[in-house]
């Protein structure tokens, strides 16, 4: 199934370059990467959790919280580590709740999302504030002819490929996601699963930093759509929501396709509301294409 998003991606790109003359311009393509970057980062994290048969519905809330923390107008050496620490703690709590206290991941991360939304609204009731200048400089800058979002995306893809497909942790993630028996082969099941949740939340925090750099302020609602969008991208990329199967390449293609879709629909002047309907429909079609053994969550 991995080829579906790739084919869809190519078809959409060809159609858009023919249908509008603004698509294949350098400016729009740079824009596209900057738009796709956040979704890509958060989807890579979501994929790790989905591989171990979990689901993280709190990534959107983590993104909002991160923009709120860095917009507190504290000095950058304080606020950036603070945001990352908060993200790591969220992941640790999510992981501990699901692994040690055996709370269902949907319940644990949904409860977490509610709590984080409350905290974010306390910190920043409406959009505003200023983020440290270093964030904007990194996100909007360029190294030689290449803009930094492209470099960051490549680093994220490379790093995640090494982690998932070349490291011991990656192997363990697949083993834990593949079935109940990983423990008997010496895999520290609980620790592996908690690690996946922590990495997912940290990646969501990085996404929040990226977005804060782009918009230059904090926004309590900016993360909202990312929980569902990241699940869509992961599912679109051929990662089985039943766990155990997934790839970085597929997730990249899934995230790229979603970003291309919204970029293209913006160029074609499709209203944001219709885009929402289309996104939901795509998600439905994708899960239809993934046959599973059991009925349920």
């Amino acid at each position: 199934m991995w080829w579906i998003p790739v084919v869809a991606l190519l078809a959409a790109a060809v159609y858009l370059s023919l249908a509008t003359d603004r698509f294949a311009t350098e400016r729009n393509l740079t824009n596209l990467v900057a738009q796709a970057g956040p979704l890509l980062l958060v989807s890579l994290g979501q994929m790790l959790v989905v591989v171990i048969r979990g689901l993280d519905l709190s990534v959107g809330a983590v993104i909002s919280l991160t923009t709120a923390i860095v917009a507190l107008e504290l000095p950058a050496p304080v606020s950036l580590p603070l945001a990352l620490l908060a993200g790591a703690c969220v992941g640790l709590v999510n992981g501990t709740l699901t692994v040690r206290f055996r709370v269902h991941p949907i319940i644990a991360t949904l409860a977490m999302a509610g709590i984080l939304q409350g905290v974010t609204q306390l910190l920043r009731p409406v959009a505003g504030g200023r983020v440290p200048e270093v964030l904007g400089a990194v996100v909007n800058g360029s190294v030689g002819p290449v803009s930094t979002p492209i470099l960051l995306a490549l680093v994220a893809i490379g790093g995640m490929t090494l982690l998932l497909h070349r490291s011991r942790l990656g192997l363990h993630l697949f083993a834990v996601g593949g079935g109940e028996t990983a423990g008997s082969f010496g895999v520290a099941e609980g620790r592996t699963r908690i690690t996946a949740y922590v990495l997912c939340s940290v990646l969501a925090t990085l996404t929040g930093l990226f977005i804060a750099g782009r918009i230059g302020s904090g926004d309590p609602n900016i993360g909202g759509p990312f929980s569902v969008d990241s699940i869509t991208a992961v599912a679109l990329g051929g990662t089985q929501l039943a766990g155990g199967i997934g790839s970085v390449g597929g997730t990249v293609a899934g995230a790229a396709f979603l970003a291309l879709l919204s970029n293209g629909m913006n160029l074609l002047n499709v209203s944001a509301f219709v885009q929402t309907i289309l996104k939901g429909t795509i998600l439905l079609v994708v899960v239809l294409l993934q046959p599973r053994k059991n009925i349920g969550l």
């Binding site: 949907i106 439905l284 046959p291 969550l297």
Partner: peptide, 12 residues
């Protein structure tokens, strides 16, 4: 269709 209930109902 045995699709994931979370994803289906979220999408709907």
């Amino acid at each position: 269709r045995r699709a994931s209930a979370v994803v289906v109902t979220l999408a709907v």
